[in-house]
Design a protein around this nucleic acid. Structure first.
Lengths: 112, 112
DNA sequence: CGATTATTTCTATAAATGTGGAAGTATTTT
DNA sequence: AAAATACTTCCACATTTATAGAAATAATCG
């Protein structure tokens, strides 16, 4: 992933409402969650939510699929993985040696 | 790190100029790099660069230290680590099992 | 078909952001 | 002390973004 694309995706994650959506959708897993359910969890107007979802879709962070009159949002897990991979790659080497190691992350990750 | 703080930091990384600064400063390591050197690498007006640096400083992504008339910028590596750790933690579990594994990341990381 | 549900698109508006020239500040040099 | 260097702050302006009500679209139900 090139810098411009990574930046545009990070920018979308860089908003509290959208980061909250991201969290909800990670938890929801591959099958996703309906817009209405997301709205209920966030308690924001539909048009506002729709705006944020559209932005995330635009940069491929998520997808929607329709089932009847319900729209389900699913995270594009591969894209998220690529984005984190990009960041991680950027953080590979500082002072001539890896500074962000797997175990550093594992430490942070252990909190979950 | 709470959601609001993480979002504000992601937002700062979510701009191509600032993400470029981030890359440069990772490479520069702990001792950092002067504003002038960053400016030379990016080829942008000083006032614009200063604006972006100020934003990154505001969310603790970087620090400045003065040496004579030169200001050195250093990444706050611990903060970056915490931010990535937060993201990883959020990505821990999907569909009742870990989906972003260390080896997934290692794959992405191997590109560097 | 008309009503209901689910969600988006339209529209307006306020606030934040990005950009860069010009002027100002800090520090060193001569 | 004046000049030079290294930046920042101030300012103005254009663009983007966030928010949310109202109207429109899509799909199902009675």
């Amino acid at each position: 992933m090139e810098l411009e694309l990574a930046a545009s995706r990070l920018a979308e994650l860089g908003h509290s409402t959208r980061l909250a959506i991201f969290r909800i959708l990670v938890k929801a897993g591959r099958q996703g969650l309906s817009v209405g359910d997301i709205q209920q969890q966030l308690d924001i107007p539909g048009s506002t939510l729709s705006h944020h979802l559209a932005r995330m879709i635009k940069v491929d962070l998520l997808q929607q699929r329709r089932e009847g009159r319900t729209l389900y949002c699913q995270l594009q897990f591969a894209v998220v993985e690529a984005l984190l991979g990009y960041l991680y790659a950027e953080c590979c080497v500082a002072d001539g040696q890896p500074w962000l190691t797997m175990s550093n992350l594992a430490g942070a990750k252990s909190a979950c």
